[in-house]
Design a protein around this nucleic acid. Structure first.
Length: 687
DNA sequence: CCACCTCGAGTTCA
DNA sequence: CTCGAGGTGG
């Protein structure tokens, strides 16, 4: 039988060891033992504590979860108020801040040293440690009074329960931000979607919702993270001389601190830091909404003091908001080439992510249902790293009363707004379609735009405005009509003086010389895109062979199955489509006959490439052409079958995926080397 | 039948 | 870029 002292020793050692591994895992993201070993330690602790409940201490790692639910949060007065920071939005604001600092310190010519760090987009909290033990944690509240969320903060694994130092200060208040990492947020929402639970609009809302749970067991299930950014009241410890050293000290006490923090000199340093951080912004594991600059010298900080409710020695330099609130003024639909009615939310214009957004697609009815967007709703609009605005979610508290009805495309648009034809939603399909076919002017216009598009017949100058006019005035009905246009026909069109009319006619004439693959793609056969058109051209070699093919013959083409084969047969069975094809040939559209069944050959034969980002000297199309000329294939998405990913600057998520799958990543030089070397040596590459 | 890979289609603003 | 859905292979 173990003695009580031995037992206490063992408990103490276990707790310290578990907390150390928490630190390795949650703070450093660098665990030193396998999860199973950690679980074993935790099980031992739980077993001992279950057997001797009187030896359980509040700072035992076992106590991170399991506190009783509360009725309400107790109020906490902050010993030192948690002030907010003044904001800077422009370089000039930052220059003014730096000038005020220099003048305030009476050293107008000096280059000031600043501590710069990311401004986390989370919730500010204060943690109180008495003699090295976490005794209380509070939200910022209004800056003077916050709420006691100690039980919830204990569940945050990266917050130390005990400070790992033999001589802790009698009192230490650590300030920082509670937030949810992007990956934890995505996982939480994924689970919520599966179980039909509440989906949060963004990591900040998720963190706020989780921290304000009255039942800590719920908070414990959400992965929250903490980053320290400063200190409040301190007793019984000598403070270092600079902000940077304070942060180093906190890091030694095992508090997580931002890896991106830096000491910079003068206003130039601040602005350079802002731009560097901005470039990394979307690659960071957490969301930030700016950078924070603090005068590094603590004595200088004290000299500068405070104005009203904000310190004079610090400022928050904000990035343009990536998310804003706005109002859905209407929901309308666009009619696409295939007749798909795509709902679009017309928004009260709002400045977000550097541009004014007034439209956002809602994709389809399922998406409207999922987000339950209604006319009049206040919505969160995001233009994250990507370009295309997105409605993230509805702010239900702001829904007008009485509630507007749910939006149904079929109810609002029983007939096509462009041509009045009936609108249907096929069994099991997500999209609602206009049945008007080419009778529908919208579909005719889209078909023409597709025909003229860069990857199809590549007719420069034939954009939306011109097509609208040509179709509305009855000048052009089918793609074949384009080849009978003349200056007289174009006269009188808006934005179409003689010069541009001439350019357009020249572009149309130039497009007569094309390739079979482009021509097939340009026809706009449903389910036949660029890749399938290339396959068809290669397989059949001539248009006549394709026209003669039946469903069976078509299915012999790689990647063509029953659905695509039937779509092609149906399209070609339509007399109107046959007429257009013949009229195009008669007008002189031609291409070199391709060698039938030609197998891809060349040094890169059988290799699949994916392009991402912007290459320094090649456009995407040029890179694709080079790869295809060498026998390689360019695909749109990364998978295990991808051989190479060619990444330029500003790469997207494809690069991450490539790295996750261990796929060879090339830059432009690497691609050229591959093309050049293989072209000269004709070597077979191992896969 | 399922999982995975591709492809097709539609999208915003300056 | 993202979603939906077609094609293919285990």
């Amino acid at each position: 039988m173990t003695s009580r002292t031995e037992l206490e020793q063992r408990l103490k050692a276990l707790r310290a060891e578990i907390e150390y591994h928490n630190y390795r895992y949650y703070v450093l993201d660098d665990p030193v033992i396998p999860d199973a070993e950690y679980d074993r330690l935790m099980q031992e602790l739980l077993a001992l504590e279950a057997a001797w409940p009187d030896l359980v201490t509040p700072d035992s790692p076992s106590q991170r979860v399991g506190a009783q639910p509360l009725k309400e949060f107790r109020e906490v007065q902050h010993a030192l108020p948690m002030l907010s920071l003044n904001n800077a939005f422009t370089d000039a604001d930052v220059q003014a801040f730096d000038r005020r600092v220099r003048e305030g310190l009476d050293r107008p010519k000096e280059i000031i040293e600043y501590a710069a760090e990311p401004k986390f987009d989370g919730l500010a909290v204060a943690l109180h440690y008495e003699h090295g033990r976490l005794v209380e944690g509070a939200t910022r509240g209004d800056g003077y009074t916050g709420e006691d969320v100690t039980a919830n903060l204990r569940t945050v694994r990266s917050i130390p329960l005990v400070l790992p130092t033999p001589d802790p200060p009698a009192w230490l208040e650590v300030r920082g931000e509670v937030l949810m990492l992007k990956r934890d947020f995505e996982r939480l929402n994924e689970e919520a979607r599966v179980q039909g639970g509440k989906v949060f609009a963004n990591p900040r809302n998720a963190a706020a919702g989780s921290l304000r749970q009255l039942d800590p067991a719920i908070t414990a299930r959400r992965r929250l993270t903490f980053f320290a950014y400063g200190i409040g009241r301190v007793e019984g410890a000598a403070l270092p001389a600079t902000q940077t050293e304070v942060m180093d000290w906190l890091a030694r006490l095992r508090f997580p601190v931002a890896a991106e923090r830096r000491v910079v000199k003068g206003v130039e340093g601040l602005l350079a830091y802002y731009r560097e951080l901005g470039a990394k912004r979307f690659a960071l594991p957490y969301e930030i909404d700016g950078a924070v600059y603090k005068v590094n010298d603590l004595a200088d900080q004290a000299r500068l003091g405070f104005v009203a409710r904000a310190p004079r020695f610090a400022i928050a330099h904000k990035y343009p908001a990536q998310e804003e609130l706005t109002v859905v003024e209407a929901i309308e639909v666009n009619v696409g080439r295939t007749g798909a009615l795509t709902p679009v939310a017309r928004l009260k214009p709002v400045f977000v992510g550097g541009v004014t957004v007034s439209n956002a697609t809602l994709h389809n009815q399922d998406e409207i249902d999922r987000k339950d967007v209604r006319v009049g709703d206040t919505v969160i609009v995001r233009r994250a790293g990507e370009v295309i605005p997105e409605i993230v979610g509805v702010v239900l508290e702001r829904r007008p009363k009485p509630e507007p009805p749910r939006f149904s495309i079929l109810e609002h648009y029983p007939v096509c707004p462009e041509c009045g034809s009936k609108v249907v939603r096929a069994e099991g399909e997500a999209v609602v379609r206009c049945t008007g076919g080419l009778y529908c002017p919208a579909q005719r216009k889209q078909a023409l735009l597709h025909f003229a598009s860069r990857r199809a017949m590549d007719i420069e100058g034939l954009g939306e405005k011109v097509v609208d006019q040509l179709v509305d005035r009855g000048i052009v009905h089918t793609p074949a009509d384009l080849y009978h246009l003349d200056l007289a026909a174009l006269a009188g069109l808006e934005r179409m003086a003689e010069k541009s009319a001439g350019n357009l006619l020249a572009a149309i004439a130039k497009s007569k010389r094309t390739t079979l693959a482009r021509f097939i793609y340009a026809l706009g056969i449903p389910n036949v895109g660029e890749a399938t058109a290339k396959d068809l051209a290669r397989h059949f070699g001539s248009l006549d062979a394709l026209l003669a093919a039946d469903v069976e013959a078509l299915q012999a083409v790689p990647d063509v199955g029953p659905v695509v084969a039937q779509a092609i047969v149906d399209f070609l069975a339509e007399a109107h489509n046959r007429q257009v094809i013949e009229a195009l040939r008669a007008a002189g559209v031609h291409w070199p006959e391709e060698a039938r069944l030609a197998k891809p050959h060349g040094p890169l034969a059988g290799k699949t490439f994916v392009l991402t980002g912007t290459l320094p000297n090649l456009t995407r199309d040029q890179a694709q052409a080079l790869i295809e000329a060498a026998g390689g294939k360019v695909s749109g998405s990364v998978s295990k079958k991808t051989d190479y990913v060619v990444a330029g600057s500003d790469p997207g998520s494809k690069l991450d995926k490539a790295q996750a799958l261990g796929i060879v990543v090339l830059d432009e030089a690497g691609l050229r080397e591959l093309l050049g070397r293989d072209a000269s040596e004709r070597t077979e590459r191992p896969s």
